[in-house]
């Protein structure tokens, strides 16, 4: 107590105990070569990715006469939402002239069940592989991983036959089944690695406490794995929503997902190329993954980095 009292004046007094010269935090130049390089490169990269998006947004808001002038970078002189309305509700694909809306709802009906089914199964798979080592679990895991590296094209024809035999070919359910199965290897790997990173003693403690396979899964593991579920959900949603190959192979025109419909709109050969409608349609199709990412992006990063933080 005494000491602090006698010390106090000397700190506040004008005759500071510090010597002249560098003191405290080192000042940093804003325009250092390091900053210029870092921000310059980041700026360039951002520009590279954002410029096409800018062109698309701008073009989709212009009327066709204005587009024919050819100034693709100039902002619209007269903003019109006509192309967006047309892309959503009026554009023709084949016989149907109800725009992308049909494809949108098809995609929703395909994506939601596929995501739920694949995540539900993959998380249980991953949990079993991580915590309940059974005879042959390593072999099973290896087979699953190899599955992730086989190009999809190789399997398309056999799957067409299998779906035909099951009576699911051309239906939404067939596509859901295909998406669920093809999401399995990478999703299982994701969940397994996450569950392996959780402390093993937690699992042991739960077993001592008498919890069984499902009780440990639902009451111990699930509450601890929100980040990885979000990551998995984002990967699956964007992956399935953006899928074109399976959509075009396994469905029929009235069950086409949005991506296939988009292709049919953009690549239709009759009549005038309506660039504004095409741009609007593309933006509409890409909006869903974009929105999903913006909403859960923070959790996404947290989930990817989850292993770094000790549970």
């Amino acid at each position: 107590m005494d000491k602090t009292l006698t010390m106090a004046p000397s700190v506040t007094s004008a005759t500071s105990r510090l010597e002249a010269g560098p003191q405290g935090k080192r000042p940093r130049k804003v325009l250092s070569s390091r900053n210029i390089i870092v921000y310059g490169l980041l700026g360039l990269a951002a520009l590279y990715y954002l410029l096409p998006l800018y062109v698309m947004v701008v073009t989709s808001l212009k009327g066709m006469p204005e587009i024919r002038l050819g100034n693709i970078f100039s902002p619209p002189m007269e903003i019109t939402f006509e192309p967006w309305v047309k892309a959503w509700a009026e554009a023709c694909t084949g016989l149907n002239c109800d725009g992308l809306s049909r494809g949108f709802w098809n995609s929703v009906r395909i994506t939601i069940p596929s995501v739920i089914v694949s995540i539900a199964i993959a998380s249980v798979n991953g949990y079993a592989l991580a915590n309940w080592r059974f005879k042959g679990s390593e072999v099973f895991f290896t087979i699953l991983i190899v599955g992730a590296f086989i190009p999809y094209q190789v399997m398309i024809y056999p799957i067409v036959i299998v779906l035909r035999e099951m009576g699911l070919y051309g239906t939404i359910y067939g596509l859901i089944l295909v998406h669920s199965i093809f999401g399995m290897p990478i999703q299982t790997l994701l969940f397994r690695n996450y569950f392996v990173s959780l402390p093993e003693e937690l699992f042991k403690a739960a077993r001592i406490d008498g919890a069984g396979f499902w009780q440990i899964y639902f009451r111990i593991m699930l509450p601890m794995s929100l980040p990885i579920f979000v990551v998995s959900m984002i990967l699956q949603t964007t992956g399935i929503w953006n899928d074109f190959l399976f959509g075009v192979v396994f469905t029929r025109p009235d069950t086409y997902p949005m991506t296939v419909q988009l292709n049919n709109i953009v690549n239709s050969v009759q009549g005038v190329k309506e660039y504004n409608v095409n741009m609007a349609a593309t933006l509409l199709t890409g909006a869903v993954p974009l929105i999903v990412y913006f909403i859960s992006g923070r959790l996404f990063v947290r989930g990817i980095a989850a292993g770094a933080v000790k549970g």
């Binding site: 003693e201 042991k204 403690a205 077993r207 001592i208 008498g210």
Partner: peptide
């Protein structure tokens, strides 16, 4: 099974359910 053995266990990392 562990639960039927009449044992309680304490772990190095505590292993509390977070």
């Amino acid at each position: 099974e562990p639960k039927d053995r009449g044992i309680g266990m304490v772990f190095q990392s505590y292993a509390l359910y977070p």
